[in-house]
Design a binder for these strands. Structure first.
Ligand SMILES: NC(=O)c1ccc[n+]([C@@H]2O[C@H](COP(=O)([O-])OP(=O)(O)OC[C@H]3O[C@@H](n4cnc5c(N)ncnc54)[C@H](O)[C@@H]3O)[C@@H](O)[C@H]2O)c1
Ligand SMILES: NC(=O)c1ccc[n+]([C@@H]2O[C@H](COP(=O)([O-])OP(=O)(O)OC[C@H]3O[C@@H](n4cnc5c(N)ncnc54)[C@H](O)[C@@H]3O)[C@@H](O)[C@H]2O)c1
Lengths: 227, 227
DNA sequence: GGTGGCTTGTGATCGGTTTAACAAGTCACA
DNA sequence: TGTGACTTGTTAAACCGATCACAAGCCACC
């Protein structure tokens, strides 16, 4: 029987946390394909990690498999869904309705997984007042007010880097507990506020580095860094 | 005098490589501000890492500072520019001219750093033949031919995940040495081909995990993972 | 019911990354 | 020119994450 650990006083290593979405993705694929059972051996080979690593990762959260049998795909998928918090919904605001912002807002998979955009903000008079994906684009000066009326879980910053910090400050002051930042700036926020930075440009620079520094080592390497 | 190591037989650790763009970004900011000199102490405090770590990282590539003085911002910036390969230009093709693809193609910073889009491909008849950012959108069936005529350094995949692997195969067959993938799929490529995956959705899932698992630890954590 | 083959979860080991410490060298200024 | 404060590059130690190895347990089949 799958048994979830309390996790209250267990510290989950960074590296483990970053792999959870990968497990989630592959389990989703197996589920869609109708596969019932999977062993750590099989799943880890698909992903390209060791079976040990996968089992050890899961062990931070509990026991989800059965010896001699493996994991029931449905159960493990549900368990990871809950671990990742993807069983509930989140209210998002997005600030900076430019090219990248529009791509995020119109991406259907987010809504499908419970990430709901409830407010779009910009400072461009040509955009303000118009509609995008069924949402009115509001003046960024009204963001603070909006946050007082409507509780928001995640603030998305897709505005230019020069204004990212001041937007973050407004979000924090408005009680937003987490920021998803796409601007190439490091945000300073009070302890307790979660910032997740998505490094698009950094990722391209790493690619350029790797092109110029032929590694003897293996080629399938993915994002990593911490600061 | 700044002295660059040969680096031919030195293996640069993953973790070090991922921090290079961060150094590059902060040095660029200092340069723009007109700062001439910086010590590992100052720079590392700005970034939020230890001075030891920064010096150790740089030591993989050579000696760029002066004892008792620190680093000349201009020199270190130039050194890292070259280490990252940002002093030369790259030819890129992008496959899947959707919302995300258009955001990338129209992002001016890439062109400014030498990343030049020279071909856009899609399979949507409504898009094919039209122009975007001065480039014609071509049928994806002509990609293989295009690659034979025009050497390409980086292939960008912003098409749906279902077709990502087959696009990657065409890119590889056409001799493209590096792939920048935005589709949520792990690509299988021959050894020697570089794949850099930018995990937008994964990043949001990590945010959701962190919202639901209050870490006692510090809050400023950035992307990491390897597979 | 017993046996063999598998597979999990976990303590032990290995390797890599981060931090600490210091000798050597530079600058500023008397 | 000499002295002191400062900072680098590097070697060593501590820490953390990945891999290994195995006892415990389950399933299937005889
Ligand atoms: N597009 C990319 O490929 C890409 C890649 C890497 C990083 N980024 C970063 O993502 C962010 C968005 O990029 P983009 O390409 O969508 O840029 P964009 O210029 O298309 O959009 C930026 C939007 O922010 C709005 N804005 C400007 N100042 C504002 C303010 N004070 N308050 C609210 N809104 C404001 C602008 O009106 C515009 O609509 C930027 O920080 C950029 O550096 C983008
Ligand atoms: N937009 C986002 O916020 C976001 C977030 C995470 C991941 N992604 C991923 O990035 C990719 C692009 O996302 P998007 O939002 O731009 O999607 P999109 O639907 O706007 O664009 C996809 C484009 O690919 C084209 N295409 C489809 N099949 C093709 C083929 N066989 N060959 C060439 N082109 C083809 C489509 O015509 C379309 O223009 C997808 O894989 C998506 O899962 C997007």
């Amino acid at each position: 029987m799958p048994r979830r650990k309390s996790l209250d006083h267990v510290v989950v290593p960074q590296a483990v946390m970053r792999r959870l979405p990968v497990y989630y993705r592959y389990l989703g694929a197996l589920l869609a394909r109708g596969t019932e059972r999977v062993s750590s051996q099989e799943l880890s080979r698909m992903i390209g990690i060791t079976a040990s690593q996968m089992r050890q990762d899961l062990s931070y959260f509990g026991s989800f498999g059965q010896q001699g049998y493996g994991y029931r795909v449905r159960d493990l998928h549900r368990a990871i869904t809950e671990i990742l918090g993807l069983h509930r919904t989140y209210q998002l605001v997005l600030v900076g309705v430019g090219n990248l912002g529009r791509a995020l807002v119109s991406y259907p998979s987010f809504a499908n997984r419970g990430f709901r955009f409830c407010g779009l903000f910009d400072n461009d008079p040509r955009l303000i007042g118009s509609e995008f994906c069924g949402l009115e684009i509001r003046p960024v000066d009204t963001l603070a007010d909006f946050l007082h009326q409507c509780p928001v879980d995640i603030g998305v910053i897709t505005a230019p880097p020069e204004v990212a910090q001041q937007i973050a400050d407004v979000l924090v002051a408005g009680g937003v507990p987490a920021i998803w930042n796409f601007a190439p700036t490091s945000l300073k926020v009070p302890k307790g506020v979660i910032v997740e930075h998505t490094h698009i440009s950094e990722s391209l620079m790493v690619l350029s580095f790797r092109l110029n520094n032929p590694e003897e080592a293996d080629t399938s390497v993915e994002s990593a860094s911490n600061q």
